[in-house]
Simulated assay, not measured.
Amino acid sequence: MDSPNVELVSALASLYESSAYSDLTITVGARRYQVHKAIVCSRSEFLAGCMRNPLQESQSGVIDLSEDDPDAVEHMVNYFYHLDYLTKPSTRRTSQRSSQPVSPLSPRLSSRTQPKKFNLAMVEDPLMAMASAANAAPNLLTPPADYQENHFETDLSAKLPDTPMADQDEQDPFETVQTEQEADVEKPNLILHAKVYEIAERYGIPGLKTLARKKFGDQLQLHLTSTEFPEACQEVYESTVDSDRGLRDIVIQTFRANPDLSLRKDVEQVIRETPGLAFELFRMANGLPVFS
Rank of each mutant, 00 (worst) to 15 (best):
T94H: 11
V73E: 01
L220M: 15
D64Y: 00
F174G: 15
Y147R: 05
L208I: 00
R245D: 11
K195A: 07
I191M: 09
N78W: 08
R272E: 09
G246E: 06
H75Q: 12
E45N: 08
G61S: 09
D169E: 14
F46I: 06
L55E: 00
P115M: 11
P126C: 06
N78V: 12
S14C: 12
S22C: 06
L222E: 15
A285C: 10
P143L: 09
A137Y: 03
E228R: 07
D64T: 02
K159C: 01
G204H: 01
D242C: 04
E201Y: 03
N286E: 09
L86E: 14
Y81G: 01
L105D: 11
V267H: 07
D155R: 15
V241Y: 10
T25K: 10
A183L: 14
P143G: 07
F229R: 09
D23V: 04
M1G: 09
S132P: 00
R97N: 07
L281N: 03
P259L: 04
R283G: 01
E268K: 15
E201I: 01
A194P: 01
E180K: 15
D218P: 00
N286A: 09
S42Y: 04
Y203A: 00
E273Q: 12
I191W: 05
P173H: 06
L120W: 11
L120F: 13
A133T: 08
L109Q: 11
E238M: 13
T27A: 08
N286C: 10
A232R: 09
S95R: 14
I26Q: 03
M284Y: 03
L156S: 15
L8D: 01
E268P: 00
Y21L: 14
K117P: 00
Y85G: 02
D2N: 13
F80V: 04
R97L: 05
S10K: 14
E231A: 14
T227Y: 10
L140Q: 12
T142S: 15
G217T: 08
L211H: 07
S132T: 03
L222C: 10
V73C: 04
